[in-house]
């Protein structure tokens, strides 16, 4: 998970900012078996996503491994302006993390 695991698109329409993001992550539930070895693949999933706009928390989302591989998330909030920065951070159950920012268009 070294780099570029988050893609963000943030758009303002009226007073509502809609943020869409795509994350690169295996999202292993821990229930799947490795086809070759027959052993369970350890759980490895994003457990928390935090979104900030203009330094304020706008969403905290917690997940299980039930969110699809390479997860997609879209959410909305009010109170931001064009050009404001939206920051998305994720952390996974194995202590991995990443974050990225994008300007609201």
């Amino acid at each position: 998970m070294a780099k570029k695991t988050i893609k963000i698109r943030a758009k303002l329409k009226g007073d509502k900012t809609t943020v869409k993001c795509l994350m690169t992550h295996p999202m292993e539930t821990g229930l799947r078996k490795d086809k070759k070895t027959g052993k369970l693949i350890p759980a490895h999933f994003i457990s928390e996503v935090v979104a900030e706009a203009g330094g304020k928390n706008v969403l905290t989302s917690n997940w299980s491994g039930g969110v699809s591989k390479n997860p997609y998330l879209s959410f909305a909030f009010t109170g931001a302006a064009k050009g404001d920065e939206v920051k998305i951070s994720w952390t996974d159950n194995q202590g991995g993390s990443d974050s990225a920012s994008a300007k609201i268009k």
């Binding site: 869409k20 795509l22 997609y72």
Partner: peptide, 13 residues
């Protein structure tokens, strides 16, 4: 719905 933000986006980059 999937093509609205397609999972192959990072692969293009």
């Amino acid at each position: 719905a999937i093509e609205a933000f397609p999972p192959y986006t990072p692969m293009i980059e």
